[in-house]
Design a protein around this nucleic acid. Structure first.
Lengths: 157, 157
DNA sequence: CATATCTCAGACTAACTGAAATAC
DNA sequence: CGTATTTCAGTTCGTCTGAGATAT
């Protein structure tokens, strides 16, 4: 790797830290207003990242017992952040997934509101917008390849 | 605003959502392993965003009583995430600030690990790196100028 | 009968408050 | 004396578990 690339990468890491603080000028208040317990937030995160899951999977991912997992999901359902539905393949199972409200809440806690971003982007020049698009597309591609990709381990059969 | 710009912005918002999910492939596990209560995490966030603050300020920002604020800071200090020091200007006051461990924890919860980012960036071409740098610099500038503040109520109890 | 989930009863802990104590 | 913080006593609520009920 050239010095030039290393400097570029260091620059971006610095930009990323700066952006992180800026995000949180937006996302921080959201987190502070959030009226969920940590166990409920973790459940929300699991549902957001693992898609529709059974109670047993929630219990395993959070490392808690079945009754606790059932209870935590129940609280999210009551809050309108998740829904329960029968697993059509095995009607003993209950599949839980986030509602749109739940999805949006996770997105806001993670990255701040979309309106906030839209405001920032609107202030940018056409050239900067184009550059950001190119750079982010490449970054997304790199992020897609880099981490382990369960989508590629196909269960075809 | 032209259609072209609007489409660009919509593209970036979509990229941002995708990136958010990718970040969380890195940051999510950190959050799930986090052994703090929500009140403690909120206190950590306040300390990260507002710099060294007095107990009274913590109480005001979190909208809790003085004893509660004192107690929450105490738990972070015991966890090695924050320190207390006398305010040299008024020795009745206690100023609390994050330790390096506390700063790093907040950074990880917010954006995932720096190593993760470095790996992604290393996989990008020179041209994409340059574009990302330009785009992020402009975004940081826009975020610095216009920190609009959305006001939204969230969730249940 | 085995499995998946839910209900119930109870233990434990953190959050929070007001009142009083301490330090400046 | 007034202000900032801590300590104390006590209430409330969420988490978590094991045992048992219910449904597939």
């Amino acid at each position: 790797m050239t010095d030039r690339r290393e400097r570029s990468i260091a620059d971006i890491l610095e930009l990323q830290r700066t952006l992180g603080r800026a995000f949180h000028a937006a996302a921080g208040p959201h987190l502070l207003l959030l009226d969920l317990t940590m166990a409920q937030l973790k459940t929300l995160i699991v549902l957001a990242d693992e898609g529709p899951v059974s109670i047993g999977q929630v219990a395993e991912l959070l490392r808690v017992g079945l009754p606790t997992a059932s209870h935590l999901v129940d609280r999210l359902v009551r809050a309108g952040l998740a829904t329960r539905e029968e697993d059509p393949a095995d009607r003993r199972r209950t599949l839980t997934r986030l509602t749109p409200a739940g999805e949006e809440l996770v997105a806001r806690v993670r990255q701040g509101s979309q309106d906030q971003w839209r405001g920032w982007l609107s202030a940018m020049s056409d050239a900067d917008l184009a550059a950001l698009t190119q750079g982010l597309q490449a970054l997304v591609q790199a992020a897609r390849v880099g981490p382990a990709t369960p989508e590629l381990a196909i269960a075809e059969g």
